[in-house]
């Protein structure tokens, strides 16, 4: 298997770390920080991103000896990071602090704006709003850790079932079933939101 320059450099850094030069790990951190933060940001609340990213890098360091170079290093890192995010949600499954959020009036108004049929620009602008985050969090809080991970990877990120099953280490059938079920739950939450809107009219 031919390796790119970046991969070759990665192997050299890994060899140094395995040889006892732990400080060389900082080079890997610098190279892959954007990738790891990018994944973690899509899965955990904003205020927990730095903690989960640290845990991911620690897990990467611990597992470095098991990297067999069968797949690109970045893919191997992504797998570990996705599983760290899943562990985060499993640990917070029964956390009483994580109460189900209720939506503000702004969110209801935002739904009205969305359905009013605006221009493409307005649509794009509204899609980056605080209300969108609020509604997404509101919906996600009603899902199990497993459903949440699958929904994020397949439906929101747009990854294939095969890719998601590889990242999570689950069977493709399991991912497919969960993807279908979790999407149904998301739509149900949105439907509930629309019901609330109609009741308030």
């Amino acid at each position: 298997m031919a390796h790119s320059d970046k991969e070759t450099q990665d192997f050299e850094i890994i060899a140094r770390i395995m040889g006892g030069d732990v400080n060389a790990f900082e080079l890997l951190v610098e190279r892959y920080r954007p990738l790891i933060f990018g994944i973690v940001m899509k899965h955990v609340p904003y205020d927990r991103v730095e903690d989960v990213a640290q845990e991911s890098f620690l897990e990467i360091f611990r597992s470095l000896g098991s990297y067999a170079a069968k797949s690109p290093f970045s893919h191997w890192l992504s797998k570990i990071t996705v599983r760290c995010c899943y562990d985060f949600w499993r640990q917070h499954r029964n956390n009483p602090e994580q109460v189900l959020s209720s939506l503000t009036e702004d969110s209801q108004q935002w739904v009205d704006t969305m359905l009013a049929g605006r221009s493409r620009d307005a649509f794009e602008r509204e899609a980056s709003g605080r209300e969108a985050r609020e509604i997404l969090n509101h919906a996600m809080a009603r899902l199990s850790a497993e459903d949440r991970m699958v929904l994020t990877l397949v439906h929101l990120d747009g990854r294939s079932v095969r890719e998601a099953s590889d990242l999570l280490g689950w069977s493709q059938i399991s991912v497919k079933v969960r993807a279908h079920r979790s999407r149904g739950k998301l739509r149900k939450v949105i439907s509930g939101l629309l019901d609330g809107r109609q009741e308030s009219i």
Binding site: M114, G129, L136, H155, D157
Partner: peptide
Amino acid sequence: REKEISKIEEVLIRFHRRHETFQA
């Protein structure tokens, strides 16, 4: 109703996929 749900769903997906960087 299905159309409305799909519309909101699409916006949420767009929100999720927007490019965002995290400043460590």
